[in-house]
Simulated scan of single mutants.
Amino acid sequence: MKYLKTIAAMSLLALCLPAAPALADGPVAAREEAQEQASFAADRETILAMAGDYRVRFDMQESTPWRASYEPLDRKISGGYESVRVIEDTGSRIVLQHLLVVDAGGEPMVIKHWRQDWEYEPARILTYDGPNRWIWSDVPERMRAGRWSQTVFQVDDSPRYAGWGQWETTNGVRRWRSNWTQRPLARRDAVRHPVYDLYASINRHQLTPDGWIHWQDNTKMDLVDGEQQPVVQEYVLNTYTRFADYDVGAADAYWAATQAYWQAVRAAWAAAFDRNGGIAIEEEAETGTVISGELLQMGSDIEAGTLAQSDAIARAVALITANTSAP
């Protein structure tokens, strides 16, 4: 009898407790066609709003060590100027190219920076699978509706990482949050030859009144006998604040001179992904892929007028073909 009374009390308590929150990564609830179209239009508007000219603040902080012997790095803050341009928009696919503008002895120098490709309701994404390897990963079918993937590419247009998530408005803030993704080490870490080998991450993009933020939640992982072990937690907040009081024209001039070359480079990488069912390419700490330095230099030489675009494209295709294989 005492047992039955306890069960009855627990049942009453359950009725009084608030319902458990819905899983954040569950399927997007079915919507009417008009709602779907409105949501799609709002998503596109948000992604396109990330284009523009910015002062950027990079704020990196290692925090919680998961390995007792590891001492977290001191916080590092840096910054610069970045122009973000829409270089492709087919409706369900939007490509944003970042161009970093730095001062080189009183003259502006443009560095082709990272690229982000957004795709609506993708069937698969190109994900990092460990050192030197990227593979095609299926997006679960029930998780595709209403969601966008973001694939990030390195400065030479080789792949870096990819994830998928839903744009939504929470507490008045428009944001996108990825699923868990794996990423290769950033140059800032790779050049130190650290004890960790890759990042397990969640990425967030959020609009702000004067720009947008990219927030990275990184667990730095060590590969031990093929198993991943956490070493330290890192929080990265990149803040893009609208600002055009720098040589924006230098960024646009560089892109006008080199965009056809980089379009051919993107096509050569895409052909390698399809040909190999993913990709394997050797990486090095200083430059990313082993061919990154030459690909970037050819872009600079085209802008300077010292290299013919056709010769650069032929060399780039040969480099990508020769240095990539199946993962």
Rank of each mutant, 00 (worst) to 15 (best):
K2T: 11
T6I: 11
A9T: 12
M10T: 07
A20N: 08
A22F: 07
G26D: 10
G26L: 00
A30V: 14
A30N: 09
Q35W: 01
Q37C: 01
S39R: 13
A41W: 00
E45K: 15
T46M: 06
L48V: 08
A49P: 04
A51I: 02
G52M: 05
D53E: 15
R57L: 12
D59R: 01
Q61E: 15
E62K: 01
E62M: 03
S63F: 03
T64F: 10
P65D: 00
E71Q: 09
P72M: 00
S78D: 14
V86A: 01
E88C: 09
T90P: 05
G91H: 05
I94D: 06
L96H: 04
Q97C: 05
Q97H: 06
Q97I: 07
G106P: 04
M109A: 14
R115N: 07
L126W: 07
Y128F: 15
N132C: 00
N132G: 00
S137N: 09
M143A: 09
R144A: 01
R144L: 03
A145I: 02
A145K: 09
R147P: 07
W148R: 12
S149W: 04
V152D: 14
D156L: 01
D157A: 05
D157P: 00
P159L: 02
R160T: 08
Y161T: 13
A162Q: 10
G163R: 10
G163V: 10
W164P: 03
Q166F: 04
T169V: 15
N171P: 06
G172M: 08
G172L: 09
R175F: 03
W176D: 08
R177P: 05
W180C: 10
R183G: 11
L185W: 09
R188D: 11
R188V: 13
H193L: 11
H193Y: 12
D197E: 00
Y199L: 07
H205P: 01
H205K: 11
T208M: 04
I213C: 02
H214P: 03
D217A: 09
N218E: 10
N218C: 06
M221L: 14
V224Y: 03
V224P: 00
G226S: 04
E227H: 08
Y235E: 11
V236K: 07
L237H: 05
N238Y: 06
F243H: 15
D245W: 10
Y246F: 15
D247W: 07
V248Y: 10
G249P: 12
A250K: 08
A253Y: 07
W255V: 06
A257H: 06
Y261D: 00
Y261N: 02
Q263P: 08
A264Q: 12
A268Q: 04
A268K: 03
W269P: 07
D274L: 08
N276M: 00
G278H: 03
A280T: 13
E282Y: 05
E282I: 08
E282Q: 12
E286T: 11
S292F: 00
Q297Y: 01
M298A: 03
M298E: 00
A304H: 10
G305Y: 06
T306R: 02
A308P: 00
D311Y: 00
D311F: 02
T321V: 10
A326N: 02
A326M: 01
